[in-house]
Design a protein around this nucleic acid. Structure first.
Lengths: 113, 113
DNA sequence: ATCGATAGGTAGCATGGCTAGGCATGGCAC
DNA sequence: GTGCCATGCCTAGCCATGCTACCTATCGAT
């Protein structure tokens, strides 16, 4: 499949990815990772050991709410939804990302002054 | 000037910025920070407490070489140049950055599957 | 004389993702 | 029927990296 799956992403982007993904659908953790991989055409892959701690972190910050429910296949899973604070945070992180990627883009383009 | 100068950038991008900046010119540390700010139209700003340790780190990894010289204004300053290894590393980091920013772009665009 | 800009540096902290494990269940192939 | 893979959740401990907050020194302009 991908020539270099290359697991690690940059610090700080994981929250953004999770928040954005959950802004479209309430999902359980495992499905979040799948959705991120699918939506990014496998460019980004989130290892479980990064995902679950991140979900707990975001929940502690009040950006996500969790509840146990059943998946379509009848299994128990913890579903996460964005809170109002989470939506605000998502907007902030999107803005930060745009600033950063624009800045880096300028520099990589070799813009002088 | 910028509404939210917002100091901190994402972890992992600093090396890329330094390497790219030095790929165009040999510069001393202080000038690197200025160049990054100028090239990014002040979107990105590197605090000294991040910059100097990073330069030492990159030098230890063999990606930069340093030597003391004089600035145009006659001051002593430590000028850094990219090594061959540094150029290779730059290519890697540029590729990683593209993968990441493309991936995030897809997700923010709401691409499904 | 003093202040801002130029130029370099350090110590210590906090964050946050990774590796590497573990646990449990369900469905499918053999 | 049993063994394995996918699904689903989790934690401990490490380590890399950038940040804040300092310090030092020189130079030019006020």
């Amino acid at each position: 499949m991908a020539p270099t799956p290359k697991s690690d992403l940059l610090q700080g982007t994981l929250d953004l990815l999770i928040l954005k993904t959950l802004s479209l659908d309430a999902l359980h953790g495992y499905a979040i990772a799948q959705r991120i991989a699918a939506s990014s055409r496998a460019l980004l892959q989130v290892p479980q050991g990064s995902l679950y701690p991140a979900l707990h972190r975001l929940e502690n910050k009040g950006w996500l709410a969790a509840e146990w429910d059943q998946t379509e296949t009848g299994r128990e899973a913890k579903f996460y939804t964005l809170t109002r604070k989470g939506r605000l945070q998502l907007e902030l992180e999107v803005a930060d990302w745009k600033r950063l990627s624009e800045g880096i883009g300028l520099i990589l383009a070799g813009a002088e002054e």
